[in-house]
Amino acid sequence: MVIDQLFWLFFMTFILLLIEGFYCVTVTYNLFRILIGLEVLIKAVTLFVIAAGYLSGHLALAQSIVITIIVIEVVVVVVAAGIILGFFREFDSLNVKNARRMKG
C-alpha cells in the first residue's frame, strides 16, 4: 500500500526530528539552544499534523489546525525570548549553570 509506505516515511522523519530536538534540549546548557531544540520539536509535530491530514484526506482540518499551532508557537517563542533576555540581563550569560551557582 502506498499510503502505508508514505505514512511510514513521515513517521520516520517525525521520530528523527524528535530525537534531534530532545537531544538538543537535554544535552545543552545554553538557554538559546534549548529554545532551538524546542522549535525543532514543534516543527516535527507540525509536519506530522499536515501529513496526517494529507493521508486521511482531511487536509482542510489539518491546515486550520496548523495555522493555530503556528500562532501559538510564535507567542511561545516571544515569551521564551523574553525570559532569555531577562535571564541574560540578570546573570550576564546564557548558561544555565551560572543560575544554579548563584542559587548555591
Partner: peptide
C-alpha cells in the same frame, strides 16, 4: 507539495520570517 498552500504561507511568513527576526535580535542583544 502536500497541497496545503495556506498553512505553507503561514509557515513561511511567520516561522521563517517573524520567529527568525526574534531569534536574530535575541542573539544580537546577548
Amino acid at each position: 507539495q502536500l497541497g496545503a498552500p495556506l498553512a505553507a504561507v503561514f509557515e513561511l511568513s511567520v516561522c521563517a520570517g517573524l520567529i527568525s527576526v526574534v531569534f536574530v535580535s535575541v542573539v544580537s542583544l546577548t
